[in-house]
């Protein structure tokens, strides 16, 4: 049904692809580990590009540890302080050991989101199109599961069985516990799902809408005549959506990091509830 409006403009080298094509996982180097397919795909390529960019940035920023920081070092220090404040404010004193994890999580998602917004080179092979790794639920859900695993392991290691107090806040009438405890357990179990799906849904929705608007532009241009003038409307729309996505890309990385901090804080302070 979406393909009905697929209107190739070979003359322009443009092509209105369906909104879902950008999420295709395409193997570049086929690899297997035993029976498991671990091919180096376009998703893996963009993960690698993102991490390589982060490493290059930080290597350049920390190469010369100057007392008066240069531009790159200032950026790295602002990022460092931003996440450090986030961790300190939400988790408190216990937060220090989670700082590298939260920082890595934040910068990884941040870069993945923003690299996904870079337009692809027109005419390049589909395997090399920009790919938003965080638009795949398995990626975001895995990251969420890492967070929840850390919460569970650290929570039980620090508080022992008192960690279960998280599900039964103190100072309630006895009867209410029959209601509160299941609610708390369900809310806890839904955390990894909502954490993962939130990032996934934001990236998915943003990129689909961007692609739909871009597709409208191509379709209207292809229709010719008066419709070509109308194509300015979806074009402006796609610019507006891009700006919104630019905000959302940073915001979702921040939200993922802050929710991770809140959950870790729950684990750190469970016994005090």
């Amino acid at each position: 049904m979406i393909h009905a409006m697929l209107h190739p403009l070979e003359a322009l080298g443009l092509q209105a692809a369906g909104p879902m094509e950008q999420f295709q996982i395409l193997p570049i180097i086929p690899l297997t580990l035993g029976d498991i397919d671990i091919s180096f795909t376009n998703s893996a390529l963009w993960m690698t590009i993102g991490v390589a960019a982060i490493i290059v940035f930080f290597a350049m920023a920390t190469g010369r540890r100057a007392l008066i920081p240069g531009r790159l070092q200032s950026m790295a220090e602002i990022l460092h302080e931003f996440v450090a404040n986030l961790v300190r404010d939400t988790i408190g004193h216990d937060g220090k050991k989670f700082f590298p994890y939260v920082f890595t999580l934040f910068i990884y998602i941040f870069v993945a989101n923003y690299f996904g917004l870079i337009p692809s080179i027109p005419g390049s092979a589909h395997e090399l199109h920009t790919f938003t790794t965080t638009s795949h639920i398995i990626v975001t859900f895995s990251l969420a599961m890492v967070t929840i695993t850390i919460v569970l392991v650290y929570g039980f290691a620090k508080n022992g069985l008192k960690f279960l107090k998280l599900f039964a806040p103190a100072g309630l009438p006895f009867v209410l516990y029959f209601l509160i405890v299941p609610i708390e357990i369900i809310s806890f179990l839904s955390r990894p799902i909502s954490l993962g799906v939130r990032l996934f849904a934001n990236m998915l929705a943003g990129h689909i809408i961007l692609k739909l608007f871009a597709g409208f532009v191509i379709s209207l241009l292809g229709a010719g005549g008066f419709a070509m003038i109308l194509s300015i409307a979806p074009f402006l729309g796609s610019v507006a959506i891009f700006l919104l996505e630019f905000l959302v890309a940073g915001l979702q990385a921040y939200v993922f990091a802050i929710l991770t901090c809140i959950y870790l804080s729950d684990a750190a302070h469970a016994a005090e509830h």
Partner: peptide
């Protein structure tokens, strides 16, 4: 506010994802 924005926007996006 931005955190609340992101959390609220998610409920709408959930509908979008279900549609997709």
């Amino acid at each position: 506010m931005l955190l609340a924005f992101a959390l609220t926007e998610f409920t709408g996006l959930l509908g979008f994802v279900i549609a997709m």
